[in-house]
Design a binder for these strands. Structure first.
Lengths: 269, 269
DNA sequence: CATTGAAGG
DNA sequence: CCTTAAATG
């Protein structure tokens, strides 16, 4: 029998600007949540631009990794009730590291990669950033693969900016050529699964109409015209401890909603 | 005896972005007002960016003159219940005309110059735009002087971006070096009076603490820490018909408030 | 402390 | 449709 004290709940949320999200109640959500760890994407702020209540909330350990080449762009952040043993941010390539996209944290034996994968759309709504996005997918996967193969528990979570299959977006047909659902992007996502990672939400739920992002345009969220582009992937070593995977569409504050996994605490070793 | 049907009421208002001002009730003010003519400064929009209710309100004739070299910058607009006989916008120098600062309208014999005088502060909060501002003052004054000397009724109204005397701002001492109250700017304003123009508000009111602009910072408007930088100047030919000059500090929607003059309708000839 | 456009999403 | 920064006031 497992009671809640034995559980570890981990969230990933693209907040689309933490300052804006904070105005809409981020701290209420955080303090009221059952989260042990929260990974944010698109923080879009330097730590010093945040209020102290947001950057260092009572009862939480935080780490921020902003983009260094452009203010207000990208950026990831981690919150944990218990201090991480280690947080690293390098992918070994300056072109990835400078965009504030990746934090890899250790909590006991568990590795948590909090990631904001690149958007494939370039400056003029073109597809010019797709090669960078695919390279990023490859580099991170190659980086984490050894730990997976050693049987370690690893989570890769965040905004992948790709819907995997037709079931993962409301309008697959009209979006076949749209960045985020193009064949090469979907194939790149598939490579993670082929390499042994599990899409934790799909592990528990085969139903359609579960999305994590809705454009602000045209009232899409109310109509649930969305995309599932935020995921928690788990290595086989983490799957042994996986109790649940959820999407939280009722949590407001961003155009994305949080996603989560619940693990048995034994995953920490 | 003069009743209200014999009066002509003319307003000038720096709206600090007409789209923003419209969100805060500009049309309610306009339709509820006793204005015959309204001159706006800092419209900061092309006519096609305005809603039709704002750009062509029922019962009003309108003319807009935007800056042509930068979107969202400067721009003046005129509203009149009765059609103008003529509206011209050129000062004869491209460097002035391209910034959308001046409309000179004729209503019968009355000439109304609706003007957004340049701010003296340059890009880096420096004083680099003061020479341009002073040249603008000179050019417009020289342009209008012949009509004044012919005895015609002329009004020059709008945001002069200069407080004339100590009485015209809450903190004269600390602002002696600030653009808007520097000696050379005040002298340039004084030249209008020396040339025969009357500061209509001061004609009726010698009291201090009457301001037309308050910075949004630090709750200055509630504390009435402001500047009188919006004026209606009248030629001797207009002064003959002047009944009142007012400041309307209770009209909200901008960091400036409207100013007005009331003339006898005989000024139209 | 506001407004605006631009880039990015 | 929304966030952010930069220019401007």
């Amino acid at each position: 029998m497992t009671d809640s004290a034995d559980l570890l709940k981990i969230y990933a949320w693209n907040v689309n600007g933490l300052r804006a999200c904070a105005r809409k109640g981020y701290l209420d959500w955080l303090h009221g949540s059952d989260a042990d760890v929260v990974g944010l994407q698109e923080v879009r702020a330097l730590e010093e631009q945040l209020t102290k209540k947001v950057s260092q909330p009572e009862g939480w350990q935080t780490h921020f990794f902003p983009a260094e080449f452009k203010k207000g762009y990208s950026g990831v952040g981690l919150y944990s009730r218990k201090a991480f043993d280690e947080v690293s941010t390098t992918m070994g390539e300056e072109r990835f590291d400078r965009e504030g996209r990746t934090q890899i944290a250790k909590l006991g034996k568990l590795t948590i990669a909090n990631v904001y994968f690149p958007n494939g759309s370039g400056t003029n709504r073109d597809l010019s950033r797709i090669p960078y996005k695919l390279d990023f997918y490859d580099r991170l996967r190659e980086m984490l693969q050894p730990a997976l193969e050693r049987g370690e528990p690893v989570l890769v979570m965040g905004d992948f900016n790709t819907a995997h299959q037709d079931i993962d977006l409301a309008n697959p047909t009209t979006n076949r050529e749209t960045s985020g659902f193009r064949p090469e992007e979907r194939a790149s996502f598939q490579q993670w699964l082929d390499a042994g990672w599990t899409d934790t939400f799909r592990h528990f739920c085969a139903e359609p109409e579960h999305y994590t992002w809705w454009t602000y345009r045209g009232n899409c969220r109310a109509r649930n015209v969305g995309w599932r582009i935020d995921y928690v992937l788990a290595s086989p070593g983490a799957m042994e401890f996986l109790m649940a995977a959820e999407i939280h569409p009722d949590v407001m504050g961003s155009d994305h909603c949080p996603v989560s996994v619940t693990l048995h605490r034994d995953v920490l070793g």
